[in-house]
Design a protein around this nucleic acid. Structure first.
Lengths: 107, 107
DNA sequence: ATAATATACCTCGAAATACAAGGCTTGTCA
DNA sequence: TGACAAGCCTTGTATTTCGAGGTATATTAT
């Protein structure tokens, strides 16, 4: 049975995070966990393939940087193309949300 | 490529429709199309397996009835168990919606 | 010094979901 | 008669997510 916690709109969320600041994978997972009060948790097995896809499609670029602590991190940066994709996915989310709520308000 | 119109929360929507009135499959598709202004369209290949699952799990019961026009229709009726499932799925939808919007309001 | 834990990245395979594309039957209308 | 709408259904495929691993380095506890 698939988890009910399923993320479903992963790329939208990832793109939005990167519109705020460049981030690395592990950081995104922590940021999400905090921001949505553990309503869902993005799993690494979900995130990293998504990031690779976004990189391949040109929505993000990546660069490696060593933290003060000495660990290497892979930062992702949103491109102009990525911003357009974010705008489009946000629009689609609003439409989807509105449609579900329209149905739920029936009766 | 999977459609962007994906329904994702099919059972929630179906359960809610049936909380308003007993309905048959074809009718649900038309009702949804109308209610959410064609934002998404539930496909038959999606709906009928869902209905079968809900029936198997006891969330709905089904009965056949012949319309005035003479065509046979399979009506679905929401059970008490189905109402509980609807309440739970609605709660989860609200949480999910809130969490996504919390992330989108960052920055 | 050594063990354990946290940070940080990644991959593979299984399970779930939705849809396209069909099929079947009966009724209506030209 | 033929075409189309109503109405139900199934199979195969593509996609998505996640569980469960693996690897490596730095910190902390023992």
């Amino acid at each position: 049975m698939r988890q009910k916690q399923a993320m479903e709109h992963t790329s939208l969320v990832v793109l939005h995070l990167l519109s705020v600041a460049d981030m690395y994978g592990y950081e995104m997972i922590a940021a999400l966990e905090k921001r949505c009060d553990s309503t869902f948790t993005m799993k690494e097995g979900t995130l990293y393939p998504i990031l690779r896809g976004l990189e391949n499609s040109g929505a993000v670029t990546a660069y490696r940087q060593v933290s003060p602590a000495g660990r290497e991190r892979k930062y992702y940066h949103l491109t102009e193309r990525g911003r357009k994709q974010l705008a489009e996915e946000t629009r689609q989310w609003r439409a989807y949300e509105g449609a579900i709520n329209a149905v739920l308000s029936m009766g």
